[in-house]
Design a protein around this nucleic acid. Structure first.
Length: 478
RNA sequence: GGCGCGAUGGCCGAGCGGUUAGGCAGAGGUCUGCAAAACCUCGUACAGCGGUUCGACUCCGCUUCGCGCCUCCA
């Protein structure tokens, strides 16, 4: 069915970390948008702070699709670095054996949050040849050198635009507060590793390269894999704000240093998640993985709601109160959708939307188009809920209009991903509950309210809620 | 020290130079046998002090408090 989505495509605008301004978004390839999103380092279970970033990227992706674009998204899996190597050594298993369960867990977590899958999830260990090739190009351009220990570094001093993303200047870097003492083999403290020579702590994790055995640096993996799947120049690159420096700055320098072309048009960064107003940390006891929260009985969609409902460039405060509020809010939305369905029955949707629905839809689009203002988009959704309920209550919403409204809600949910996901199935009523329902109906007919209430309580004890409306009893699985 | 961000009613959380954000919680009401749901009404919120302005939560400055990055943490 064709929905009445206004053309937001022309009006999308995003804040670009590179320019520090909002600007209208244009893809390089017309209909297709190519985006690279920094993925997890798979040495552990991801925590909810990580998922705030992945949620932001999900909204971005869904908004682009909503606006009519085809999205080609890459999310890398960092499966070789200090932490993964350390973990595998401690566990006494090969690297891949160590990381695989965390990769599986990561995908399971994405599913429980209804985060749409990316098109590609390349693993670093599968792309070492591409990284080596890229480093060779940097050598050819005079931007890389090998130190005495065999490691290869990027020569920041040879790349004048270094610092343009993080807006840092090199003199500041040199005076940096944290200068590692063991970095003497670098020519300059600002230089970063492209290739790390093997040392004992790497165990058997090593690849052959023109510079001897070793392993790739962290930054080079994103450059190599981004280019492999998206080309040497692409539209969007996202990540958490803490990736901005040094990771993204380094990636940018490497990539443009190798190709001589612009690497990414728009860089977008998501602010941190806080928990009860504090930074999440193990010592504060407020460090939660997604699994921790699911185990506490919170549903994925409730957590999705919480993670979604803030502007991505603003720190978001995670509280358990907020999850409780999300639960109630979702119940209201669910209630509304059910009611629309009942009102619509199987009536075909009006081709014309009721005026007030069209207006709300317009606001919804405008909010998202303006640098992904999800809270405002949510406000529009709730305006629809309120006015829709009101119209259904006074009987002024015709079934065909209800059907059209439902189609709009479904359309909006393409971005929000809240409605058609994660609701407990309305399982078939067990025979005992059905019997109670029937008995209650009879009691009600006889105006035996005491018996009616008793049966309602009994059903509640079995996990079924019953409500009385104009057209009889309605049952819902709790 | 450098670069940057924030302080909104009980909680979460948008926003704008002058007109309601929204959600949750709370109070009252309508409906209902009751309950639930739904709808209606209700909060003199914009850290403090100055300034600009006819008018500032919204711009500027200062102060206080909090936060992020400054070599591998989303």
């Amino acid at each position: 069915m064709k929905t009445n989505t206004p053309p937001v495509r022309a009006s999308l605008q995003f804040y670009n970390s590179l320019t520090r301004h909002k600007a209208p978004f244009h893809s390089e390839n017309g209909r297709q948008v190519r985006m690279y999103t920094c993925g997890p380092t798979v040495y552990n279970f991801a925590h909810i702070g990580n998922f705030r970033a992945y949620m932001f990227e999900d909204v971005l992706r869904r908004t682009l699709r909503f606006a009519g674009y085809d999205v080609l998204q890459v999310m890398n899996l960092t499966d070789v670095d200090d932490k993964t190597i350390r973990g595998s050594l401690q566990a006494g298993v090969p690297l891949k054996t160590f990381t695989q369960p965390f990769i599986d867990a990561f995908f399971a977590d994405l599913r429980s949050l209804n985060i749409e899958p990316a098109e590609f999830y390349p693993a670093a260990t599968d792309h070492v040849p591409e990284m080596i090739a890229l480093i060779q190009r940097l050598f050819a351009n005079g931007l890389a050198y090998q130190s005495e220990d065999g490691s290869v570094y990027f020569k920041v001093s040879a790349w004048p635009s270094y610092g343009k993303l993080a807006h840092l200047d090199l003199s500041g870097l040199r005076a940096g507060a944290r200068v590692a003492q063991d970095e003497y083999e670098k020519e300059s403290v600002g230089d970063f590793a492209l290739w790390k020579a093997w040392d004992e702590q790497d165990g058997d994790v090593a690849w052959d390269s023109p510079w001897g055995r070793g392993r790739p640096g962290w930054h080079i993996e994103c450059s190599a894999m981004g280019m492999k799947y998206l080309g040497e120049t692409f539209d969007l690159h996202t990540g958490g704000i803490d990736n901005l420096f040094p990771h993204h700055e380094n990636e940018l320098a490497q990539s443009e240093g190798a190709t001589g072309k612009p690497f990414v048009h728009v860089w977008m960064h998501c602010a941190h998640l806080r928990v009860n107003g504090e930074k999440m940390s193990k010592s504060l006891g407020n460090f939660f993985t997604l699994r921790d929260l699911l185990a506490r009985g919170y549903a994925g969609r409730e957590l999705r709601y919480v993670l979604l409902n803030g502007h991505y460039r603003q720190p978001l405060n995670f509280t358990f109160d907020a999850v409780e509020a999300a639960r109630t809010s979702l119940a209201r939305i669910d209630e509304f959708v059910d009611r629309l369905r009942e009102t619509a029955a199987s009536t075909p949707a009006d081709p014309e939307l009721p005026g007030w629905v069209a207006e709300i839809q317009r606001q919804f689009c405008a909010a998202l188009s303006d640098d992904l203002n999800v809270p405002e988009a949510m406000a529009a959704l709730f305006a629809l809920v309120r006015e829709g309920n009101s119209a259904m209550q006074n009987g002024s919403l015709r079934p065909s209009e209800a059907a059209a409204t439902l189609a709009q809600v479904t359309d909006m949910d393409g971005v929000l991903g809240l409605i058609s996901f994660g609701r407990r199935d309305a399982r078939a009523m067990p025979a005992d509950v059905a019997a109670l329902l029937e008995a209650r109906g009879a009691a009600r007919q006889a105006k035996n309210w005491a018996e009616s209430d008793r049966l309602r309580d009994e059903m509640a004890r079995l996990g079924w809620e019953v409500r009385d409306g104009k057209d009889g009893q309605k049952v819902k699985k709790l």
